[in-house]
Amino acid sequence: MNWVNLTSVEQLEEIKNASGYSLIFKHSTRCSISLMAKKNFEFDWDVIPSDTKLFFLDLISYRDISNHVAEVFQVTHQSPQILLIKDGECILEASHSDISAEEVAEVIAA
């Protein structure tokens, strides 16, 4: 699996309008906790169905998009943070040590 860099509002609108599952990983490049959460997530991400679109948001470089994510999906901004989107709605949000590829896979399988 590979990350798709989330770098534009247009991509965010595509995620909002897409059918199926998309995941946004909001990452701070200045935070060691965020780096650890990302590494742990990537270590286990093979449990997530391969047709799930995985988006990576560098929120230091793209703070405006990060703010837009919070607004569009009605979540409180956190870092690190994952949002699992299904058919335009955020159905799972987790941050810090609660970020889990296994939980994402379980929600998708349910």
Rank of each mutant, 00 (worst) to 15 (best):
S61M: 13
N17D: 01
V104L: 07
S28A: 11
L35A: 15
E10M: 13
E14A: 02
L12C: 07
A18Y: 07
L57E: 09
E93N: 12
E89I: 10
S32P: 12
F25Q: 08
E102S: 06
T7E: 13
Y62M: 00
M1N: 15
S22P: 09
A101D: 00
T7H: 07
A105Q: 00
F55V: 00
S34P: 09
E103G: 08
F55A: 03
D98N: 14
N40V: 04
F41K: 01
G88I: 01
L84E: 06
F43R: 15
S19D: 14
P49F: 03
E71I: 11
I91A: 09
C90G: 13
Y21S: 05
Q81D: 06
I99F: 04
I108C: 05
F41A: 07
N5L: 01
L84R: 06
E71Q: 11
I33H: 12
T7K: 12
S97R: 07
H77P: 06
I99C: 08
N67V: 03
N5M: 08
N17L: 02
S50I: 08
E71V: 10
I108V: 07
I48G: 06
A105F: 01
S50A: 14
I108M: 10
D46T: 15
G88L: 08
D51V: 01
A94I: 05
G88C: 07
N67L: 12
R63D: 09
F56L: 01
I24H: 02
E102R: 11
V104S: 05
T76D: 14
F56Y: 05
S22M: 06
